[in-house]
């Protein structure tokens, strides 16, 4: 490479310097880590094998549950129908509903989703070998699409219940929460039916409230 090309390449890599706040924030993180765990290297020798053993046991348990292949095999929470008659305003389960990364916008493209229902979370199990996906089983109160479906359904969803959330932008849900879920029942890349439907992010999966449920009913009936 001649000098001109080398210089051009170097200039293509130029980036603005970070703000002092960014540098300070990063330095603060290591300060906190140092204060929180000053003897970390000693502790890790004991902790790592213990954590590894716990993780292995957990994975074996989850795999066993998954291999049984039926939603009823998933741990089922006590049947909890919300006793309150009013619900707080519906909100998306994650903060990405306005993200430019979303390929469809809610509610404009709700009507295009392959399925939609109102249901209560019975159980949630992390899907093995994925960092963020959970098999979530619902007691369905009403199917908006398709019209006739089973009373219980297991849906793959981004993120687990609160306390087991893995995404930084996840609002989350709890076992027993009443949710409105819509998404895909067909893999858009292959056109094949999915074993478990996928609850979409980007606002298409959200907490339940009566006005939003009414809207969904109308939208899906069109």
């Amino acid at each position: 490479m001649n000098d001109d090309n080398w210089t051009t390449l170097q200039s293509a890599g130029k980036v603005p310097p970070p703000s002092p706040e960014v540098l300070a924030h990063a330095a603060q993180r290591v300060e906190q880590a140092a204060t929180r765990n000053p003897r970390r290297t000693v502790g890790r020798r004991v902790l790592v094998p213990a954590l590894a053993a716990t993780a292995t046991a957990a994975v074996i348990g989850v795999v066993a549950l998954q291999q049984s292949n039926t939603p009823t095999a998933l741990p089922v929470a006590p049947s909890t129908t919300p006793s309150v008659s009013t619900y707080p305003p519906s909100r998306p389960l994650e903060n990405q509903d306005k993200s430019p990364l979303c390929v469809a916008s809610y509610p404009k493209e709700l009507q295009k989703r392959g399925f939609g229902f109102d249901g209560t979370v019975l159980s949630a199990v992390q899907i093995p070998r994925t960092a963020y996906y959970w098999a979530v089983t619902f007691q369905v109160h009403e199917w908006y699409r398709p019209g006739r479906s089973p009373q219980q359904v297991t849906v793959q969803m981004l993120g687990g219940p609160n306390g087991q959330v893995q995404l930084e932008d996840q609002v989350g849900y709890e076992i027993g929460d009443r949710l409105l879920i819509s998404g895909a029942s067909v893999d858009s890349r292959t056109g094949k039916a999915l074993k478990y439907p996928i609850g979409w992010a980007c606002g298409f999966s959200r907490t339940y409230d009566v006005p939003t449920a009414d809207t969904w009913r109308k939208v899906f009936s069109k």
Partner: peptide, 17 residues
């Protein structure tokens, strides 16, 4: 690595990165 795991499924659910 973490991001790829997330994106594999994210593509299906309507997010792309």
């Amino acid at each position: 690595r973490k991001h790829r795991l997330r994106s594999t499924m994210a593509r299906v659910i309507g997010i792309d990165r």
